[in-house]
Amino acid sequence: MINEKVPILHIDHLQKRFGKFQALKNISFDIYPGEVFGFIGPNGAGKSTTIRTILGILRASGGQATIFGKDVFKNAVEIHKKIAYVPGDVYLWPNLTGGEIIDLLLKLSHDQHSVKTYQLIKEFQLDTTKKARTYSKGNRQKVALIAAFSSDADLYIFDEPTSGLDPLNEEIFQKEVLKLKAAGKAVLLSSHILSEVEKMCDRIGIIRDGKIVETGSLEQMRHLTRTLIKVQTRLPVPELSTLPGVHNLTVEKGNFLNLSVDSEQMETIMNYLVQKQIVSLQATPPTLEDLFMRYYDSTNGVSHDGK
């Protein structure tokens, strides 16, 4: 296994400018072996630009990006030996069949059409005799996914890979990614499907306006945000709304309270509620979606008390 302390992908203050438009302002993150890194952010935030820069398709205007310790632009060819990539929009040559394209892509990475390839084709239920012209978006993605999963790489990059897949195929995708993880591979997964990211990713990077605004594990991120609490108490709780860290307090009939609580104030609030004799209590950890919404809402920007 590769040394787990050394990142496979290392990005340090990466910048990219298209003419006057600064697409990437400040991107930094690392991906380690055996790790699935979720890359999320609104449309146009710079996810695909980051990925294309990592792949040496675009030339960075500042900062540094290395894979296996090598510069992504200068040593692109060497690096690509150990990379598998599935673009966000898969365009395939219309007059070749899916099967021909899979084989070609494998040969280009010096891999073979193996038993694994055969199994993947069967699992994804792809008709490989059809010309790419006739494929739907999902089927085009399957072609690229099959080629990627059956090639032997150390870093797998998926740019919104499941946006055209049905739930069954999405599950196959997730299963395959977990296998890669178990095998100690590094995976960069850019996605909009938050449940997918939540389920599979060890760490997450949130990008907005060309900047990474947050990185860390979901647990760490949750810590930054609030837990939703639905509580019923025997005694009234007049002071609750004045306590620090309490937000969005609403009262339903039967003395049911809905509120959200800052993680760091959890202890105080719970102690207070216990004094008021809890009848029932439901706590929901913030979903990635809640996190996401907070960071995405660009009109409010990142703030800890706004909604």
């Binding site: 069949t97 070609l104 005799t129 059809k130």
Partner: peptide
């Protein structure tokens, strides 16, 4: 458009 080969 006709179908084609399943392998390259």
């Amino acid at each position: 458009t006709r179908s084609g080969k399943s392998n390259a």
